[in-house]
Amino acid sequence: DVEPGKFYKGVVTRIEKYGAFINLNEQVRGLLRPRDMISLRAENLNVGDEIIVQAIDVRPEKREIDFKYIP
């Protein structure tokens, strides 16, 4: 289970104008929005990159997770 405030290692699987999709594993995926990329620009991300993200909002009923990148 993903808990708000905890840090996780994930892999960038898709990049859109509104953010990057980060997979923690095959069943868990969330969104890293540009406003939550402190000191990281979306254009510096590539599909396949491994990054550490913090879960900031977890909505299990919608199967949605928002992440924040903190260097």
Results as ranks from 00 to 15, higher is better:
residue 10 G to F: 05
residue 48 G to R: 01
residue 14 R to D: 02
residue 3 E to A: 09
residue 61 E to G: 12
residue 59 R to D: 07
residue 56 I to T: 08
residue 21 F to H: 06
residue 31 L to W: 04
residue 71 P to V: 09
residue 31 L to I: 10
residue 50 E to D: 07
residue 17 K to W: 15
residue 66 D to V: 13
residue 7 F to H: 04
residue 32 L to V: 05
residue 40 L to D: 06
residue 7 F to E: 03
residue 36 D to K: 04
residue 61 E to P: 05
residue 23 N to F: 09
residue 67 F to D: 03
residue 10 G to D: 01
residue 71 P to Y: 09
residue 31 L to F: 07
residue 53 V to T: 00
residue 55 A to Y: 04
residue 49 D to Y: 06
residue 4 P to L: 14
residue 15 I to N: 01
residue 1 D to P: 13
residue 7 F to T: 05
residue 42 A to K: 14
residue 64 E to F: 13
residue 58 V to Q: 04
residue 54 Q to E: 05
residue 67 F to R: 02
residue 46 N to G: 09
residue 23 N to T: 14
residue 61 E to R: 08
residue 15 I to H: 01
residue 9 K to I: 12
residue 67 F to N: 03
residue 30 G to C: 10
residue 47 V to Q: 02
residue 71 P to G: 14
residue 56 I to K: 08
residue 67 F to K: 02
residue 71 P to C: 15
residue 52 I to S: 02
residue 54 Q to T: 05
residue 13 T to H: 04
residue 66 D to N: 07
residue 25 N to W: 10
residue 56 I to M: 12
residue 65 I to N: 04
residue 18 Y to Q: 07
residue 34 P to H: 14
residue 16 E to W: 13
residue 67 F to C: 06
residue 38 I to R: 10
residue 8 Y to S: 00
residue 36 D to N: 13
residue 60 P to D: 06
residue 52 I to G: 00
residue 4 P to D: 05
residue 20 A to F: 11
residue 1 D to M: 14
residue 39 S to G: 15
residue 10 G to Q: 00
residue 19 G to C: 10
residue 63 R to F: 11
residue 46 N to V: 12
residue 32 L to S: 02
residue 65 I to M: 04
residue 8 Y to L: 02
residue 37 M to D: 04
residue 65 I to D: 05
residue 12 V to S: 00
residue 25 N to G: 11
residue 62 K to G: 07
residue 24 L to S: 01
residue 12 V to P: 00
residue 1 D to C: 15
residue 42 A to I: 15
residue 43 E to K: 11
residue 36 D to L: 06
residue 64 E to Y: 13
residue 16 E to H: 09
residue 21 F to S: 03
residue 21 F to P: 00
residue 60 P to W: 13
residue 22 I to V: 11
residue 50 E to G: 05
residue 42 A to L: 15
residue 62 K to Y: 08
residue 2 V to W: 06
residue 46 N to W: 10
residue 56 I to Y: 09
residue 42 A to M: 15
residue 40 L to E: 06
residue 28 V to L: 13
residue 18 Y to G: 07
residue 67 F to E: 03
residue 59 R to S: 05
residue 51 I to Y: 02
residue 44 N to L: 13
residue 14 R to Q: 11
residue 40 L to H: 06
residue 38 I to V: 13
residue 15 I to T: 03
residue 48 G to Q: 01
residue 4 P to Y: 07
residue 66 D to M: 12
residue 43 E to L: 12
residue 54 Q to N: 02
residue 30 G to N: 02
residue 45 L to N: 01
residue 49 D to K: 03
residue 24 L to K: 00
residue 53 V to I: 07
residue 33 R to F: 05
residue 6 K to R: 13
residue 37 M to H: 04
residue 65 I to Q: 02
residue 56 I to P: 01
residue 9 K to R: 13
residue 51 I to H: 00
residue 26 E to V: 12
residue 47 V to C: 04
residue 36 D to Y: 10
residue 29 R to W: 13
residue 13 T to W: 03
residue 16 E to Y: 10
residue 63 R to D: 09
residue 18 Y to R: 07
residue 14 R to F: 05
residue 58 V to L: 05
residue 23 N to E: 14
residue 11 V to M: 07
residue 44 N to Q: 15
residue 6 K to L: 07
residue 41 R to E: 10
residue 54 Q to F: 12
residue 68 K to N: 04
residue 31 L to D: 03
residue 37 M to C: 09
residue 2 V to M: 05
residue 65 I to F: 07
residue 44 N to D: 15
residue 27 Q to Y: 14
residue 4 P to W: 07
residue 7 F to P: 01
residue 64 E to M: 10
residue 44 N to H: 14
residue 13 T to M: 06
residue 52 I to T: 09
residue 54 Q to C: 12
residue 4 P to A: 12
residue 28 V to K: 02
residue 66 D to G: 06
residue 63 R to S: 11
residue 13 T to A: 08
residue 2 V to D: 02
residue 37 M to R: 03
residue 33 R to N: 06
residue 42 A to Y: 15
residue 66 D to T: 11
residue 48 G to P: 00
residue 29 R to V: 14
residue 70 I to L: 11
residue 45 L to C: 06
residue 3 E to M: 13
residue 3 E to V: 15
residue 33 R to G: 07
residue 25 N to P: 03
residue 35 R to L: 09
residue 38 I to T: 13
residue 12 V to W: 00
residue 9 K to E: 04
residue 8 Y to F: 04
residue 52 I to P: 01
residue 29 R to A: 10
residue 21 F to Y: 14
residue 47 V to S: 01
residue 21 F to G: 01
residue 36 D to M: 06
residue 6 K to V: 07
residue 68 K to Y: 07
residue 60 P to F: 09
residue 55 A to K: 01
residue 41 R to S: 13
residue 1 D to G: 13
